[in-house]
Amino acid sequence: MKHLIIIFVFFSLDIYADEKLFLKANNYYNLEQYDDAIILYDSLIIQGFEHHKIYLNIGNCFYQKKDWKNAIWNYEKSLKIKKSQIAKENLSIAKLNIVDKVEPIPLLFYKMWWKNIYSYFTTFNWQIFCLLSIWILIILKIINQFFYFNFSKLIQNFLLFVSLILFLISYSSLKNSFLNNEGIIFKSAVEVYSAPTDQSTDLFTLHSGTKIKVLDQINGWVNIRIANGETGWIKLDSYKKL
């Protein structure tokens, strides 16, 4: 069986955070008192300190407890805030321990290429890059107009092109964020039905730790899709929303 070490990340919260609380949580982790560490990390989140590394550390605690569904949920939550290579690696390791090995539908090469681009940074990061490029272009226009310093049309057209590309990437990232209403299965086994009723046909079974995409919700049921494209209905209390 493959054994890999989960990396535990230490970091400094900003000056407004309760540093003592964070250090105490780290100390509990080192003492292998994972439940106490989780309680303290959760208290930081409740206070409003939603940092991607807090979720990463919580995921590591659950990993050590072999609670795969909670480990996966927290790694996914960390990645929603910031794309971290450590979180990606830890998530991949945790997924080795769950029952369902769902193979995603392969995307066409250009769709995969575009997805890799807009997923490289968060939506907020892409929006900042886009705004910066637009402001630089505006400043150059103002300098040209009022200070008679002639920037070539080539430079201005290049910045305009970059701004347009960054806008398209930002839009794709934002659209993906809104459409990706996702969650993790939390019950040990969940029957997936063909319709939102117990009397409908059982299609397949999902197990804890599996990621789902929510398509619709009605009367305590949710219509879901998993990575291989299969769809169906599960009960609302079967999963935890990301």
Score class of each variant (00 low, 15 high):
98 I>R: 05
138 I>C: 12
101 K>V: 14
109 F>E: 02
153 K>C: 06
161 F>C: 02
150 N>R: 02
167 F>L: 11
146 F>G: 03
143 I>N: 10
110 Y>W: 14
141 K>Q: 07
152 S>I: 10
165 I>K: 05
94 A>Q: 02
102 V>D: 00
144 N>W: 02
97 N>Y: 15
149 F>N: 10
92 S>Q: 13
109 F>H: 07
144 N>M: 06
120 Y>F: 15
94 A>L: 03
113 W>A: 02
160 L>R: 11
99 V>G: 09
156 Q>T: 12
163 S>P: 03
142 I>R: 01
143 I>E: 02
155 I>G: 01
167 F>Q: 01
167 F>H: 02
144 N>V: 12
106 P>D: 13
148 Y>E: 13
163 S>T: 11
127 Q>D: 06
140 L>S: 04
112 M>Q: 15
134 I>S: 05
97 N>E: 08
113 W>T: 08
111 K>R: 12
132 L>N: 13
153 K>V: 10
109 F>P: 02
128 I>M: 10
140 L>A: 05
166 L>K: 06
108 L>R: 04
114 W>I: 13
108 L>G: 00
155 I>Q: 08
149 F>R: 02
119 S>R: 03
109 F>R: 09
140 L>F: 08
129 F>G: 11
151 F>C: 07
156 Q>N: 10
101 K>G: 11
160 L>C: 10
111 K>L: 13
143 I>H: 09
117 I>G: 05
134 I>A: 01
133 S>L: 11
156 Q>Y: 02
112 M>L: 14
124 F>N: 06
108 L>H: 13
97 N>A: 10
147 F>R: 09
167 F>I: 13
135 W>T: 14
126 W>R: 00
113 W>G: 04
92 S>G: 09
138 I>E: 02
120 Y>M: 08
149 F>S: 02
103 E>I: 13
159 L>T: 05
117 I>Y: 04
111 K>A: 12
150 N>S: 08
143 I>K: 11
164 L>V: 07
160 L>F: 13
151 F>A: 03
121 F>D: 01
123 T>N: 15
104 P>M: 06
100 D>C: 11
165 I>Q: 09
108 L>Q: 05
146 F>M: 05
124 F>D: 09
126 W>I: 04
105 I>L: 15
93 I>K: 03
116 N>H: 10
98 I>L: 06
135 W>F: 15
147 F>P: 09
147 F>C: 04
157 N>M: 00
94 A>S: 09
133 S>N: 08
112 M>N: 15
164 L>R: 00
106 P>L: 12
129 F>C: 08
126 W>P: 02
100 D>R: 10
108 L>Y: 13
146 F>E: 11
96 L>V: 12
